[in-house]
Each structure stands twice: as C-alpha cells, then as structure tokens.
Amino acid sequence: MNYKEITDLIKLVNKTNLSEVKLKDKDFEISIRTSNFQGKSTQVVQPNPAPMMQMPVAPTPAAPAAPVQDAPAKKESEAKSTEGLLEVKSPIVGTFYRSSSPDKPAYAKVGDTIEKGDTVCIVEAMKLFNEIESEVSGTIVKVMIEDAAPVEYDQVLFLVDPS
C-alpha cells in the first residue's frame, strides 16, 4: 500500500461506524482504530492481493444506534482506552484553534496520522498566534478541546496512539 492508499483507507474507516480495522497481506500489516475503539471488537478484513478499491469494507449503516451503556461502565472503558496513548499538551495559556482560519480545514482530526514536527493546532495568546508542533508521532485518537475554547498551561489537547 502506498501513502495515499493508507490515508484513503483511514478516511474511509472514519466515515464508518467501525471501531477497528486490521489488514494483513504477506509482508504488510495495518491496524486502524477509531474513536469508537474500546479494546474489544476486532474486525479483520482480509483481502486478496487485489486493488484497494475492491476491498470489502462494511457498508455504513444508516444512523446506527449507539451502544447504550451505564455511565460508570463507560467511564471505566474510557480510562482503559487511554492506556498507552501519548498526549499533546499546550505549552501556554491561551485559546485553542483547530485551523488557521474559520474557512480552513482542521490541522489534525481523529484518525489522522501525525509525525513529530507536524502542526496540530494553534493556541492564541494575547493576539500572538502559536502553531503547536507535535513532539510525538502516531494517530490522533481524541481531540480533547473544542475549537475556540480556552486552554490552560499543560492542558492535554490531543491523545495520540503511537502504535
């Protein structure tokens, strides 16, 4: 798989309600987890060495019902799912922006693969704009702050899965 095929696959998986997709092929293996992932269900898609476009991906169910869970149980699984994840924190007090201007796409969204040094957001402090470069590499699992919300020093902005 080339880079474009991988990013296309990630985008595709994100549009579905799947929590995880694993893909194996001779000497290649990829595993994509989405924010739905809670450490349980694993769906393995094993295609023939055929073009990507023919890869069977589960169709998107129309408005799937979210699994109903008790609040405490959900909390537990959330805590569990943050294990092994890395954090991108704000080095300053300011206002968090996900893109460079309202009409521009977000620097980083859930499912995006980021490299060390990539800009992931802007934190504005007293009209000074700060592009925050990630110090970690991996896949964005969660965006912790709403766009245009205030952030404190050392507050976690993103959770990143390094695997």
Binding site: P91, M126, K127, L128, F129, N130, E131, E133
Partner: peptide, 27 residues
C-alpha cells in the same frame, strides 16, 4: 495593548506575530 501603534487616537501600524512552538521552546 497588545500590539497596535497609535498616533493620538488613530491606528497607524499593526503587528501580527506567528510563532512555532515545540514544547517549551519558540522554534
């Protein structure tokens, strides 16, 4: 405050600072 320049009550200059931060360092 924070970074416009005024002559009397009129604006004559503006500044736009864009930093890149790597952790605690302004790169």
């Amino acid at each position: 405050w924070p970074n416009d320049i005024y002559v009397d009550d009129k604006k004559i200059a503006g500044i736009l600072v864009q930093n890149s931060l790597v952790g605690k360092t302004i790169s």
